[in-house]
Design a protein around this nucleic acid. Structure first.
Length: 505
RNA sequence: GCCGCGUUGGUCAAGGGGUUAAGACGCCUCCCUUUCACGGAGGAAUCACGGGUUCGAAUCCCGUACGUGGUACCA
């Protein structure tokens, strides 16, 4: 059996969508599981939708996700170029061959003529008429024109396209790796344009030619391609490559709260839909990404992997190597899955708990610096991360959960203590601060014991004193156990915070 | 409209003729902790609907409904 080769073929038109990343992921997992190659091919055949920065952006996203291609415009490889615009010249010959063999034809209709046809044929029953075996007879193409007329038009370089000639009455079927047998009546499918007037291929021609030339063995793409699959199948056949045709799998869609997931949903419901921040160079509109929202790539990959796939066990947390080991296309769900942001956050939380401190250090430090908190000491940072990571769902949560380790809280939640504050408690804290200043061995157990002994001495329940102490040290009702905080921030800082806070109570 | 694909709790889902229909997220109650979390123990679903087939159907078949995708010289 030949080496497994799969490809992800994005078009550089904008941000990389959740569904897009999952498609890459499944490609990647399948390839790696079978010791195959993962190729990224840029489908930039639509010059009108091309966005300059989008290509680099896509690679940045893949890199962040840890989905490194084996071959691509950036990684090179023996089957280049990996940008379809650079392969432009190679497509025409195949289209011409199809015309010669009677499987395709020239069409000279102008945009206006096409519009007119659609307008004329439009009825209540048929709101969107196609350019197909019924309507092509009335159009301006090499099927209706004489040979001489066609030749003349061609010689005068009249703008034209090449369209596939869909058979009138055939049934074409194939086996989808996740859906099984699927069949279509060819007469219901339109005569898709194969080669555009500008000489560029459409997706339909390019995907077949390039998959063939690049020796792709398995073609995975979104379910939205299913309706045009018969065109591709026919092309493989007409070009005489049928025995080399890849196996297909059409992946289910990822849906938003109301149907198809769109980047609008992100803004509307407050969750990211792109892998990374995407700033549209045309509109300057910024769409937030999972990365910037504070997701770990491990979590992002994990949640995407199990959105539509499971290995049949109860396991939900998977690392990339585990996914590679366990992934299989036939366990991919057939139906679309609604994206659940709450669960996505849960995955991130789990990964933050799971990942080692060293894996968090860089991001957390950056976040703190961005929030004007200086981190003088990496070992303090590490201890802090270890202490608070259980209570962080998204990376930015570290700012609130750990900033008080590095700087005195600016604002204290005085309302939390004031109602129950008393002179007795004030006395206690004055005495405690004094006691603390005499402690030589600054460590958790001693601080806590001193606290409890003094409380007993003063006849106050220690529980009633803990919240005030927390507010003094942290500023609010959150954070790890108080004495651990005191231990970490040190003697001077602890005493200072106690004294300062009392002025406000 | 037509064509394709789909339909197990609010969400992700296991299960593919006989099960008390797993598990997870979220929600609620309780325990732990006199912060917030973590952790632990519980609570809530007859499988879209209608017909078949069968001794027996969430599981097989057919309809209907609903959802979703396509119906571009976009991918």
């Amino acid at each position: 059996m030949s080496k497994v080769r799969v490809r992800f073929a994005p078009s550089p038109t904008g941000g990389l969508h959740l569904g897009g990343v999952r498609t890459v992921l499944y490609n990647y997992l399948f390839a790696k599981k079978h010791n195959g190659d993962f190729i990224v091919r840029i489908e930039d055949t639509d010059q009108t939708r091309f966005v300059e920065s989008a290509e680099q952006y896509i690679f940045d996203c893949l890199n962040w996700c840890g989905l490194e291609p084996d071959e691509s415009v950036l990684h090179g490889g023996p089957y280049g170029p990996y940008r379809q615009s650079e392969r432009k010249e190679s497509y025409r010959q195949y289209a011409e061959q199809l015309v010669k063999d009677g499987y395709a034809y020239y069409a000279f209709d102008t945009k206006e003529e096409l519009e007119k046809m659609r307008e004329d044929l439009k009825t209540a029953e048929n709101p969107s008429p196609q350019y197909d075996h019924t309507s092509r007879k009335k159009m301006k193409n090499s099927l209706t024109l004489t040979e001489a007329e066609v030749k003349d038009l061609l010689v005068n370089s009249t703008p034209h396209v090449i369209r596939i000639k869909m058979p009138e009455n055939e049934v074409i079927s194939f086996t989808d790796m996740i859906r099984g047998e699927i069949s279509f009546e060819t007469g219901l499918v339109d005569d898709k344009v194969l080669l555009k007037a500008d000489g560029m291929p459409t997706y339909h021609l390019a995907v077949v030619v390039d998959d063939y030339l690049m020796k792709i063995t398995h073609a995975f793409r979104g379910e939205e391609w299913l309706p045009s699959a018969p065109v591709h199948l026919l092309l493989w056949k007409y070009l005489g490559w049928q025995k080399d045709m890849p196996q297909w799998a059409h992946l289910p869609l990822i849906l938003g709260p109301n149907g198809k997931l769109s980047k609008r949903d992100g803004a509307k419901y407050g969750f990211p839909v792109f892998a990374m921040n995407w700033a549209d160079p045309k509109t300057n509109e910024l769409t937030e990404g999972f990365k910037e929202k504070g997701f770990l790539p491990e979590a992002f990959i994990n949640l995407l992997a199990v959105l539509g796939w499971n290995d049949g066990t109860e396991q939900e947390l998977y690392s990339m190597p585990e996914l590679i080991e366990k992934f299989s296309m036939d366990r991919v769900h057939v139906a679309g899955a609604k994206f659940d942001y709450e669960k996505a956050k849960w995955f991130n939380h789990e990964w933050i708990k799971k990942v080692k401190v060293s894996g968090l250090r860089f991001e957390v430090k950056n976040l703190l610096i961005k929030n004007r908190i200086t981190v003088p000491d990496d070992s303090l940072l590490d201890k802090t991360i270890e202490l608070v990571k259980d209570r962080c769902t998204l990376l930015p949560d570290f700012v609130q959960q750990s900033s008080f380790f590095f700087k005195t809280p600016e604002q204290l939640d005085v309302d939390a203590v004031k109602p129950k504050w008393s002179d007795e408690k004030r006395d206690f804290f004055i005495a405690y601060a004094e006691k603390l200043s005499g402690i030589g061995n600054w460590e958790l157990g001693i601080l806590e014991a001193a606290f409890k002994d003094l409380a007993a001495e003063k006849n106050i329940k220690p529980g009633e004193l803990q919240l005030p102490l927390r507010i003094m040290l942290v500023g609010g009702k959150f954070g790890p156990p108080v004495f651990q905080i005191a231990e970490l921030i040190g003697k001077n800082e602890t005493i200072k915070r106690i004294n300062n806070a009392m002025k406000q109570f």
